[in-house]
Design a protein around this nucleic acid. Structure first.
Lengths: 346, 346
DNA sequence: AATTAGCACTCAAAGATGAAGAGTGCTAAC
DNA sequence: GTTAGCACTCTTCATCTTTGAGTGCTAATT
């Protein structure tokens, strides 16, 4: 569709704009990129590229800036040609830092967001591990008093969730212990999906004396496992957005930060995004949410036992250093997966 | 020190500046506040007030703006004359909303910050309950595998904290249970201070067979109770700062938000602040941290069983509606304490 | 002695003007 | 098909002017 020279011109425009954040003129390109043609020719090519929707002009006598379509083209090119390489030394260094600084899993994710934001200089976001993707390592019911039970769920990577459950009738500590052992025996090692299948009336038959109680506790457990409220979103470098000239306008900066600060929206953004691909990139208007329609969001996943359990990513202006961000994310994805795997084995 | 008329003039300046956010001239005051003297007289008084440090001029031909000292005077006046009244109806309405919307304690605090920010239109901050201020309702050790124990601490208001503890030798489930029961029996109903006194070598004598193990677990428990990392800071309305003309400057807004986003700093800010008074107010330069040296921070506490266990407050430009904020905070302080007390009784 | 009217003076904010510079698009020549 | 050249457009920046709000001082008034 685009001939050789058009691609070269387009890439030159993008390259220059990514660096300078200024509309790019034909003369700049003819001087700084050796395309072997004069500025007039480039001018004609740029005019064509504008007609094709890859470039646009802020006003008549300005240079051109790349459109979302141009960035999409550029990014697909990067991904297709597999230009991404990870600096192994850097990767190992970050891995060491992460391992050293992070006591708990949640620390690990939060620290990752921090370092990611620092090295990319964009706002970083990360999703804490979703317990529902993991296997249950342990379940324990603890009687707090006659009518209160604390339900504790421990995931295989050491993530812990608890809920307090209130009964409408008294229960003895012995009864609670029996039930606790029963659940633990039956559910240990299963994922939420398995558990949903396992917890049925049938299962309770062998334990019929507590059927009513089990019937009321079972949904609580499933609920606690499924609850999205327990998924934390970690943010770092929110104010990095101020450093970009495209956000020198207060209103824009405000609406960006307001959006980013709203955990619910952010959660939707990160969870709705299909979780299957290695690297997910949405550029500008591809984003559903208005306040980030001139941002690009790049995310990747981290896994445990081969299953995707969380996400980490970066958000910034569409004029983003895609190559650098993608390779940084690959680095983090690998590191997180490796560190979690290590924690699990221990 | 200040005579009657000076006070009137000062209050008029403050009143006008709080509303308009513009330097106040002598003519404005003589027209809009009936002080019975001409603008020339007010001009002389204002000049005196400037010499005394209560007012300052942004430049020669501008009106005057109140200094931190003026705000301090104004606020002390408010507090001394007890001008604060709580709208009972509003209080009950908010109480109903909070009770309805908040399932867990942490929800309650977070929702409070949200509503507080909404009604004051300043940034709201809140500290989650500090477990170390509370009585231990339950302690439970759960064996995860041969070398891992999950330690669960439940506070009297239902707050739960957990830590995973790794041993360097195997331990059986029975042993863990015995130790768990032992701790539970000994420590239940105590506060962290009591616990610190109770957990000594002496205590272990009656349980000498596990002395080594107890010795290594005890500090973990104390640590988990003391750990500040577990105190959450909830923020709401961070971007409200953009609405104030004093923050139309990007750099100022950025440094404010950067500060506010740093949980560690915020924690220090809220915890270092003496926790004894009903309402704490720091104005402008009274704040230690540079980025908020032209902000005012107003906080109050909430209690459980007569003991202060957390904080909630508001931060905004020194040109703040102190009266409204103080009465809003009193309202929240009372509500939170009442709701927590209710939760405890249940 | 305190208050007030009056006036010169100061300064920021806002608008007006103009020059500079970057860039385009078109035309005509190569 | 490519390029040189030029008229035209539009932003940006600096400079200048005007306007108006406000002060501080002095002299008159109460």
């Amino acid at each position: 569709m685009l001939d050789e020279r058009k691609i070269k011109v387009l890439c030159a425009v993008i390259d220059s704009y990514l660096r300078e954040a200024e509309p790019v003129g034909s003369r700049t390109i003819s001087k700084e990129y050796n395309l072997g043609v004069s500025s007039a020719t480039i001018r004609n090519e740029m005019s064509d590229l504008e007609d094709l929707g890859y470039l646009s002009k802020p006003h008549t006598s300005a240079g051109r800036i790349p459109s979302d379509k141009a960035y999409r083209f550029y990014v697909n090119n990067i991904l297709k040609e597999n230009k991404i390489q990870i600096d192994i030394e850097k990767k190992e260094k970050i891995k060491r830092i992460l391992t050293r600084e992070s006591k708990e899993i949640d620390d690990l994710i939060q620290n990752s967001a921090k370092i990611l934001s620092a090295i990319t200089s964009y706002t970083a976001l990360a999703l804490s591990p979703q317990i529902k993707k993991m296997k249950l390592k342990h379940i324990q019911l603890v009687p707090l008093d006659e009518r209160e039970i604390l339900i504790i769920l421990v995931g295989d990577s050491g993530i812990v969730r608890n809920t307090i459950f209130r009964l409408d009738q008294d229960i003895s500590a012995e009864q609670v212990e029996k039930i606790s052992n029963f659940f633990n025996h039956k559910l240990k090692g299963l994922t939420i999906n398995d558990i949903r299948k396992t917890i049925t009336g049938e299962m309770f038959r062998e334990f019929y004396e507590y059927k009513n109680l089990l019937d009321s506790i079972a949904p609580i457990i499933i609920n606690a496992l499924e609850d999205n409220d327990d998924v934390e979103v970690y943010l770092d470098g929110v104010t990095k957005i101020f450093d970009f000239p495209e956000y020198k306008d207060m209103e824009k900066a405000k609406s960006f930060i307001s959006f980013i600060e709203d955990k619910d929206q952010l959660l939707n953004l990160l969870l709705n995004n299909t979780i299957e691909e290695d690297i997910e990139i949405t550029i500008g208007k591809e984003n559903i949410y208005d306040p980030i329609k001139d941002c690009s969001l790049i995310t990747t996943t981290y896994k445990l036992g081969g299953v995707t359990i969380g996400k980490i990513g970066v958000i910034g202006p569409t004029r983003m250093d895609y190559l650098m961000v993608i390779s940084s994310l690959k680095l983090f994805s690998a590191n997180l997966t490796e560190i979690l795997e290590m924690l699990l084995k221990r």
